[in-house]
Design a protein around this nucleic acid. Structure first.
Length: 646
RNA sequence: GCCAGUGUAGCUCAGUUGGCCAGAGCAGCUGAUUUGUAAUCAGCUGGUCGGGGGUUCGAAUCCCUCCACUGGCUCCA
């Protein structure tokens, strides 16, 4: 007998070799139908796998993330079965659930066959057919020799490659219907639970994620236990598209692009420019208070500077090719730091000048691969909320902490809550290649940064091999509405460029030292930040950021004179306001203004003129009643000044 | 850069077994309407069907090529 402990603490005894599925059935048939997998002593298992010792047990259904994981993992096998049945002789790499998000994929070598959209429809049908057969997923432990034999006979070199890294005695096969795969599982009990199937896209994916390798065909799909859930999922995708920054950016007149201008080159329209200027105002106010000095630097520089900075060997692929002028090569700048270092070096510095903080909304150009460009989030000309802080080792922790506090302050203003702080570390095996070869400095500065994060009690995750070439960094990761991850903001340590540029300051005991440098961009770039904000606010920008803040809506032209007076009052209070003097009905004017997402509407008719008031309507909230003009102006000005969010 | 898909008016989209001057709604313009919290009515304007080349008596529709965008891969603020 084995003792099974349930999540509620109850303990029951069962015959040795009982399965989670049998236990579920003993509780209720209804429950058993929902069980997808089981957590046995914290390990995720097949519900049909025998339990041979005392265990804690949690039954996993669609409601648990691990249940979904098994469901989609099994769906990938089902898709593979359909692919193999349809295109015999294909070879399989791996087919996991999508890491963050919904569904699964499988990377497949289809030989000469080019997969089309029609094939997807065919495969969906085949999958449904196989699912209806409700074939069990059968787990089998297999020796490495037998596994090698199986895939050698099948001629699947990808699976043989996988097997090489696996230890004998630790290898399992799963078979459902006519398809057998090397897999550690777990899987759902049978294909019958997969009721709703949608294959979503075809993509190329380099084998092992290395662009030097062959590109396999990746098929993405998503499945659900019911058609209703699939429909809801597709509906959700439609909703997400509505708040895509590319759609909103067009609708709200934020930015445009043009074939003649070039890929990834954003032109900010008047509305977008207002948002930019408000963000810069915020940055300038904040940085002034924090002791930064502002500078302006050119957009190009000679090759020699980027050789000094060390960017050219590490970063050349991401820079526009140089132009030749007077026999010299000039590069469009891809970063502002070298220019700032030159400003630091322009005059001798003493320890009394430190920390020396230089800020610039710098325009930089990056030659991103064409396939990587994405709306405002990934572009080739960007405007960075950049600054460089030159400080002593003793000052470093305080400076780094102050930058983190600046982030927190900004994020509070924008109501940004969903993000991941990532401590990005180097990878020791890439020293001298991707990272400057200073093992000791890496160790020291990574520890410094980690300590600041711990002391500040900021939750974070550590990630290897994501550092800048000159030092570790903290990245703020956010997700676009379609689920793509981006670094919104960054705070970087640089222990390398100070020496490269021979930057020095005089110490109190009259020696010379090289400063540490902090690169920071808490508001990231205008492009990515505004792209993010549009999605974050679903286009409903807070009053202070709104290109048009107030629209005055006279009910008929009898009241236009008074409405124009109100408009002047608003403008004199530095409120961005317009009047809708078209001969339209008020319902129409309100509708148009609501759709333009203008925060406030002031409606003016006979009553308002007589009482010298305005009727206030708030976007998405409706009628707020009548107010004295001056009272409204005072409220609006306060809302703008305090940068009230939402 | 690679794999796949898409590209028709300012916007959203019809039009593909190749065939009369390429359509609709919204927007815009003109006129009428003078209006109380999400669409007043009528008329009109507007398109090298992404660019170029080819097949054909005839191409938005078929083929080639280039460009851009979209979904991924690689890469990154």
């Amino acid at each position: 007998m084995v003792k099974i402990t349930f999540p509620d603490g109850a303990v029951r005894e069962y015959a040795e070799g009982i399965t989670a599925m049998e236990i579920a059935k003993s509780i209720s048939e209804g429950l058993a139908k929902k069980v997808l997998a089981a957590s046995v002593n914290g390990n995720i298992w097949d519900a049909t796998r025998p339990i041979s010792q005392d265990s804690s047990l949690k039954l996993l259904t669609w409601n648990e993330a691990d249940g979904k994981y098994a469901f989609w993992h099994s769906s990938a096998h089902l898709m593979a079965e359909a692919v193999e049945a349809t295109f015999p002789g294909v070879k399989f790499w791996v087919g996991p659930p999508v890491e963050k998000g919904y569904g699964f994929y499988y990377d497949i070598d289809l030989g000469d066959h080019k997969l089309t959209e029609e094939d997807l429809t065919k495969l969906e049908k085949k999958m449904s057919e196989l699912a209806r057969q409700n074939n069990p997923y059968i787990r089998k432990e297999i020796s490495k020799a037998d596994a090698l034999k199986y895939f050698t006979e099948k001629g699947d070199e990808y699976k043989l490659d996988l097997l090489q890294n696996l230890e004998d005695g630790n290898i399992t096969f799963y078979t459902q219907g006519g398809f057998t795969d090397l897999c550690r599982g777990p899987h759902v009990p049978g294909t019958g639970v997969i009721k709703a199937i949608k294959l979503t896209s075809i993509a190329g994916a380099y084998w092992k994620g290395d662009e030097k390798n062959k590109q396999l065909t990746r098929i993405y799909g998503v499945t659900f236990p019911t058609q209703k859930e699939l429909d809801e999922y597709l509906q959700m995708l439609e909703e997400a598209k509505k708040r895509d920054h590319r759609k909103l950016g067009k609708e709200l007149g934020i930015y445009t692009m043009d074939d003649d201008v070039g890929q990834g080159l954003i032109m900010w329209l008047p509305n977008g420019t207002v948002v930019i200027e408000e963000l810069e105002k915020l940055a300038k106010e904040t940085e002034l208070k924090a002791g930064y000095k502002r500078v302006v630097t050119p957009h190009i520089a000679k090759e020699s500077m980027y050789l000094t900075s060390g960017h050219l060997p590490y970063y050349a692929d991401s820079m526009y090719p140089p132009m030749e002028v007077d026999g010299e090569k000039y590069y469009l700048k891809a970063m502002n730091c070298p220019h700032h270092h030159k400003i630091f070096a322009a005059e001798p510095k003493s320890y009394r000048d430190l920390p020396y903080r230089l800020a610039e909304y710098g325009t930089v150009y990056r030659y991103e691969q064409s396939g990587e460009l994405f709306g405002l989030m990934r572009v080739r000309c960007l405007h960075m909320n950049d600054a460089h802080i030159y400080c002593t080792r003793e000052q470093f922790a305080d400076e780094f902490r102050a930058v983190n506090e600046m982030y927190q302050k900004y994020f509070a203003i924008f109501g940004i809550e969903k993000y991941v702080m990532r401590l990005s570390l180097h990878s020791p095996d890439k020293l001298g290649k991707k990272y400057v070869n200073e093992p000791e400095l890496w160790k020291e500065t990574e520890e410094m940064v980690r300590r600041v994060l711990i002391e500040s009690k900021i939750p974070y995750v550590e990630v290897q091999d994501e550092a800048a070439f000159y030092g570790p960094k903290i990245d703020v990761q956010i997700f676009s509405v379609i689920g793509r991850e981006f670094t919104l903001a960054t705070n970087q340590v640089d222990f390398s460029q100070g020496a490269s540029f021979k930057l020095q300051y005089t110490t109190p005991d009259n020696r010379t030292e090289t400063p540490l440098i902090i690169h920071r961009a808490p508001l990231g770039t205008h492009e990515r930040f505004i792209g993010f904000l549009l999605e974050h606010y679903a286009g409903n920008l807070p009053l202070w950021l709104s290109p048009l803040q107030v629209k005055v809506l006279p009910i008929s032209d009898k009241f236009i004179d008074y409405a124009r007076m109100v408009l002047d009052t608003l403008k004199n209070a530095d409120i961005r306001a317009e009047i809708d003097d078209r001969p339209e009905k008020i319902g129409r004017k309100i509708r148009d203004t609501e759709m333009a997402k203008v925060p406030y509407m002031l409606i003016i008719g006979e009553k308002e003129v007589n009482e010298q008031k305005v009727s206030v309507r708030r976007h998405r909230k409706g009628d707020l009643g009548a107010l004295d003009v001056q009272v409204f102006v005072n409220q609006a000005v306060a809302e703008i000044r305090e940068r009230v969010s939402g």
